[in-house]
Design a binder for these strands. Structure first.
Length: 265
DNA sequence: CCCTATGTTCCCAA
DNA sequence: CTTGGGAACATAGG
């Protein structure tokens, strides 16, 4: 469910409620999850995101970091009034001011606690809103023969783009999802760079895309679903040329595109 | 009962 | 080594 804009939304909202607050307790309700040692009594130093991974840094000399990946159906919900936990609540972290619940029907979400790493080593993984440059994409992709949609969604190369935004980005950039990365022109990479930046920023401003499960930290739906141009719109007219949006599988994932606007080079 | 699903990882075959 | 396909994980909803 959560891709980069959704995780970014949660990070920003979490800062409003738990930054500098002390953890009073943790309760693990799903036996699949084991982490959680040593966080009680610590204070939240910072909340950040790397791709779809949330990093909550806690203070102390040997600072530790909570790492959370929500996978497909994970949610975070702030319960300011100590309400009863929702069904499928997998763990809760309590503060004096309220409780942070992780709800996850399919139980794919992962939680871990690690010693805080000193600084980010120069990674080769691109963060779309930081160092996303067409030249860099070209450099990574020029010797590969994967479909460009698979490349955009490959977290080893680019952090945070999932199935919804990959379809939207390629539509916006006039790129065919099946086109192999080694055959994309620099001009197309430039289009991809621009589309990615504008779409992800707008989706963040909309607090994410709610097509089924997604809710923000306070239980509200996002708004970007109103701006989707191809995702989940098979048969609808293309906003640019009126051709029917098509749906096909690519590497096992539903892929939406305009057969007219997104022809391969 | 059938199919689908916003993610990731692993196994296997070409 | 690269790439693609399929299954697995576990569950809800149409």
């Amino acid at each position: 469910m959560p891709e980069l804009p959704e995780v970014e939304t949660l990070c920003r909202q979490l800062k409003q409620v738990i930054l500098d607050k002390e953890i009073r307790g943790i309760e693990i309700l799903d036996p699949k999850l084991t982490a959680g040692e040593g966080i009680v009594g610590r204070r939240v130093l910072s909340i950040a995101r790397q791709g779809k991974v949330m990093e909550i840094k806690l203070d102390d000399g040997d600072g530790i970091t909570i790492l959370l990946h929500l996978r497909l159906t994970g949610r975070l919900l702030w319960q300011g009034d100590n309400n009863f936990p929702f069904p499928h609540t997998r763990f809760t972290i309590s503060f004096l001011q309220g409780r942070l619940d992780c709800i996850d029907s399919r139980r794919f979400a992962t939680l871990s606690v690690q010693k805080t790493r000193n600084s980010d080593f120069a990674t080769s993984v691109v963060e779309p809103l930081k160092d996303f440059r067409a030249s860099r994409l070209w450099e990574m992709a020029r010797r590969r023969k994967v479909p460009v949609k698979s490349f955009l969604m490959d977290q080893r190369f680019i952090a945070g783009i999932g199935n919804i935004y990959a379809s939207e980005i390629l539509y916006e950039a006039f790129v065919n999802p099946w086109q192999k990365t080694d055959s994309l022109s620099p001009a197309k990479w430039q289009k991809i760079e621009e589309a990615t930046t504008s779409i992800l920023n707008r989706a963040i401003a909309c607090r994410g895309t709610t097509v089924s499960d997604w809710r923000d930290l306070f239980g509200r739906k996002g708004e970007y679903q109103h701006y989707l141009k191809v995702y989940a719109r098979q048969g609808c007219p293309c906003p640019r040329c009126q051709a029917a949006i098509q749906f096909m599988h690519l590497s096992g994932r539903g892929t939406y595109f305009c057969p007219t606007c997104q022809k391969a080079d």
